[in-house]
Structure formats: structure tokens, C-alpha cells
């Protein structure tokens, strides 16, 4: 077992401005927030686990406790056989961490200059980290921007650099906090492909938090869903059949106003409503029964389509659905 969390909890005390007027406003009250409550789970070596939940659900708090930068309020946690907080430096040599919104690279140095420092920090001789660096650089296509200062890289380029930096020392476990946030489709896909390859090739354990369901579908066999600080679902990806039930929504603008009743809809589709005096219509459909293309073709027979957009179910809805189905 590479991660073992037992009854892990973390509370925060938040000071709030007092209510009312005058002096009352200066009277501060404190409130306790239970960011993570009695969370227990284990992760086996070589697993790829998606840790998902809405904003403020407790994902990042858990990650911080796993990496040893936040002391749990109660409970026990072991990562790679070490206790994260007291053995933080030793743990850092066994794991790789990517914080999607922070950088571990040296901002004003060329990208390639970060790697000798990281290699030395992990106490690896050049003969060990250099070949690995070449391998990562090739797989992630870092070549064209290795000599550019990190501050001049695009987000997609920097993220590839960040992931290479986290994997340089061949960690047993890689923890990624929102690795694809803000990336375009192509960058997301190449990052996922690389992480998947890394896990298959080297047996690296992956734990990632994300807002993007496609990350989970492409990378993880197992998901942990956290909601309001507790684990709402822990199971294999096939348990996500409920998620697949979550309907997509197609928003169609017609050339001329149209009465919703006049639309011919195939089975699996449902008319949700019309806006803009009948120009814009919202149609929900079940992707297992009906493809977007088939729906569009069917709708096009009733009227001329001017524009359309597709909306994926958001993670809050998915979590709610998983939560109710798990009970």
C-alpha cells in the first residue's frame, strides 16, 4: 500500500467580521470549518486514482496532508511508508508533486536549468538524472523551448515542464493537483497520454485531483469522490455508469423562431425550453442512446439551424448524482 489514510480530519478556524453597526463590527467571531472529515482510504502501488469533488470539497486539503505541508487535526496517514509531516524531506525524494496553479521551476532561468538543481536536490548523480531528463524531454516534446526562460513559456509548455520536473527522480507516487487546469484540448490530451504511458511503463502510482471528467476517464481506473469533506464514493471507473447517465445539453439557435412543440426529437432527447422568442432551444440528451450528430440531424429536419453549442454535465451535478446513488 502506498497511501494509507485513516480517519483523517482537518479543521480550519476562520475569523469573521462581526455583524451590525459601529463597535459591533469590530467584534470578531471565529467559526470552525471542517474541510476534511474522517476520511479513510488506501491506494495500492501502480493504481491511478482520481480524487474528484466540487470546489471547497476538501480535495486540496487532503493533498496537502498527504504531501506533509499541512498537519492533520486528527487521524493517521502514511505515504510510501513514511509519515508526511515529520518525514517531509525524506518523502519528497519518493514522490513527485505537481500543483497546477503553482510552479516548481525557476521562473527567470531557462527551462533546462531547473533540472540540474532538481537532480541535485534529489541527491542523484548526473549519470542517473541526465538520461531520464533526455527521455522526459523527448516524450513531452520540451526540446523547442528548453532554452527559454520559464516566465516566457505558455501555460501548456510550462505544465509539460512541471510534469517533467516532478518525474525526474522516478518517484513511486505522483500527486497532481489540477494538472490540466487552464490547458487547451491538445495540451490536455498530450499530458494525459504521457501520464498514462508513465504509469504503464514504470508502474508509477498516480493520484490526481481534477475538475475535468475527461482526465478521470482517460487516466483513472478508480475514483474517490469527496463532497463536503467526506468521501461520497470510492469505486472503480465502471461505477461511473451513473455518471454516463448524466445528460449532455445541446443549445441550438434556429434561423427563424420556432415553437418547441414543432421540433421532431428522437428517443433519448428531451426539450428543456426555448429562449429568445423561440430562436434558441435547449435539448437534453442521453449520450448512450443518442449521439450529438444524430440529434443534430434529426433536429435539422424540422428547421434550419444557425448555430449550436454542447454543454457537458458539470462536476457538481455528477457528485450529487454519485452521492445519491451511493446511499
Amino acid at each position: 500500500m502506498i497511501i494509507e489514510a485513516e480517519q483523517l480530519s482537518r479543521n480550519f478556524t476562520v475569523a469573521e467580521a462581526g455583524e451590525g453597526r459601529g463597535w459591533n463590527r469590530l467584534r470578531r467571531r471565529s467559526r470552525t470549518i471542517h474541510a476534511v472529515r474522517d476520511v479513510s482510504f488506501t491506494v495500492e502501488r501502480g493504481e491511478a486514482v482520481g480524487y474528484i469533488g466540487a470546489n471547497g470539497a476538501g480535495k486540496s486539503t487532503t493533498i496537502k496532508m498527504l504531501t506533509g505541508i499541512l498537519v492533520p487535526s486528527s487521524g493517521r496517514v502514511t505515504v510510501c511508508g513514511l509519515q508526511p509531516v515529520p518525514q517531509r524531506q525524506a518523502l519528497a525524494r519518493k514522490i513527485g508533486v505537481v500543483f497546477g496553479q503553482r510552479s516548481q521551476l525557476w521562473w527567470d532561468l531557462p527551462l533546462q536549468d531547473s533540472f540540474p538543481i532538481l537532480g541535485a536536490m534529489h541527491r542523484q548523480p548526473e549519470s542517473r538524472w541526465r538520461p531520464r531528463f533526455s527521455e522526459l524531454s523527448e516524450q513531452m516534446g520540451l526540446g523547442p523551448f528548453l532554452t527559454s526562460p520559464v516566465r516566457q513559456l505558455s501555460l501548456g509548455q510550462r505544465m509539460r515542464g512541471e510534469v517533467a520536473a516532478a518525474l525526474l527522480h522516478r518517484p513511486e507516487l505522483v500527486i497532481l493537483d489540477e494538472p490540466t487546469i487552464g490547458l487547451d484540448m491538445i495540451s490536455k490530451e498530450s499530458l494525459r497520454r504521457f501520464l498514462d504511458f508513465e504509469r504503464r511503463e514504470h508502474g508509477t502510482t498516480l493520484l490526481l485531483t481534477t475538475h475535468d471528467m475527461s482526465d478521470v476517464q482517460r487516466l483513472c481506473q478508480r475514483i474517490l469522490v469527496v463532497d463536503d469533506g467526506v468521501i461520497a464514493f470510492d469505486g472503480p471507473l465502471t461505477g461511473l455508469s451513473e455518471v454516463a447517465e448524466a445528460r449532455r445539453t445541446m443549445v441550438i439557435d434556429f434561423v427563424a423562431p420556432l415553437d418547441g412543440a414543432g421540433l421532431v426529437l428522437p428517443p433519448g432527447a428531451e426539450h428543456l425550453g426555448a429562449e429568445a422568442e423561440g430562436i434558441r432551444h435547449r435539448i437534453a440528451f442521453d449520450p448512450r442512446l443518442l449521439s450529438a450528430a444524430a440529434l443534430l440531424a434529426a433536429v435539422s429536419t424540422s428547421a434550419e439551424v444557425a448555430d449550436l453549442s454542447l454543454h457537458e454535465p458539470d462536476i457538481e451535478d455528477l457528485v450529487r448524482q454519485l452521492y445519491t446513488s451511493a446511499r
Binding site: 496537502k64 506533509g68 519528497a92 525524494r93 508533486v97 500543483f99 516548481q104 536536490m121
Partner: peptide, 13 residues
Amino acid sequence: SGDIAVDLTRSVN
């Protein structure tokens, strides 16, 4: 800013 988290997850003093 919270970037100290990155410093603390490095294996150096």
C-alpha cells in the same frame, strides 16, 4: 500566496 508549499515539498532544508 501559498507558493511556500512548493518550497516545502522539496527535499532540501
